[in-house]
Write a protein that binds this DNA or RNA. Sequence first.
DNA 1: TCCCTATTTTTGCATTATCCAAACATTAGG
DNA 2: CCTAATGTTTGGATAATGCAAAAATAGGGA
Lengths: 145, 145
Amino acid sequence: MMLIKQVGVMVNILNCKLKKHIASVFKSEGINLTAEQFLVMDTLWNQGEMTQQSIAYLIQKDKNSVTQFIDNLEKKGLVNRVVDSSDRRVNNIRLSKAGMAMKDNTKNVAIDVLNDIVEGISEEDLRTFVKVLNKACDNIEKLKE
Amino acid sequence: MMLIKQVGVMVNILNCKLKKHIASVFKSEGINLTAEQFLVMDTLWNQGEMTQQSIAYLIQKDKNSVTQFIDNLEKKGLVNRVVDSSDRRVNNIRLSKAGMAMKDNTKNVAIDVLNDIVEGISEEDLRTFVKVLNKACDNIEKLKE
DNA sequence: TCCCTATTTTTGCATTATCCAAACATTAGG
DNA sequence: CCTAATGTTTGGATAATGCAAAAATAGGGA
């Protein structure tokens, strides 16, 4: 019961601290991305060109948010919207040269940040942690139905 | 390595889903509070009257954010700012009658929501989960120094 | 071909959270 | 007293998110 309450509070707190910390490290490394923009870029680096909808699904944000993320990434010259040749409603989001160029460094910085943050946590606990994160998300999804 | 990346992504996703879900349940229960406003109210319900600074520390937000939270709660008539009698710089934040009145119902709704969300997760895993949340927060704090 | 509906994305508008820096009022120490 | 420190507010900015309506296009009948 005390434990349960911790969950709500601490997830909120960790998320804020995490975002703030990543923003600060990115800034000092000259990487101009918010946490959410990084999620999009990381998805594109891993999966290649894809539609806004697929991005929205993968990072679990709504379409309006993704539109804004892509707007901002496009302004920064990191991605381009390319109209799909077979369905002109669809935008394929493609990494620009600049977007590709920052991949390795940014990924390394992100991994380093996360490694620092999980310092001193056993692999087993980390595995449990991620398992619980996923389960909780699933539960919320099911509650919507 | 794959595991580590999950941490960053999933904490972000869970936090968003959690906030959204709580907002939706609160709305359908006629409770007019955002997740952050609830954190403040819950702190006041548990600890009684306290300064903005103590609230900021307990919910780990910065003072500007807390000023805004209190502004909004005051507009809703749930709390009052009471100037401290021994140090006039300090605002003591005091629950109003309306703020007290919603305590039991709101706490019950929040507990129910969280219980639904951790459905099917063992107490042991939950304990590990909270432990990791705390450790990760501590690590971030230490990285600042 | 034309119409209706569904799909993908954008737009406009609103709220909220968060940050920074500067201002303000008040207190406390030399 | 004067100065530095403290607790809070303000103004100005960016970002994430939500909702509803609009725009563009696709696809399936009639």
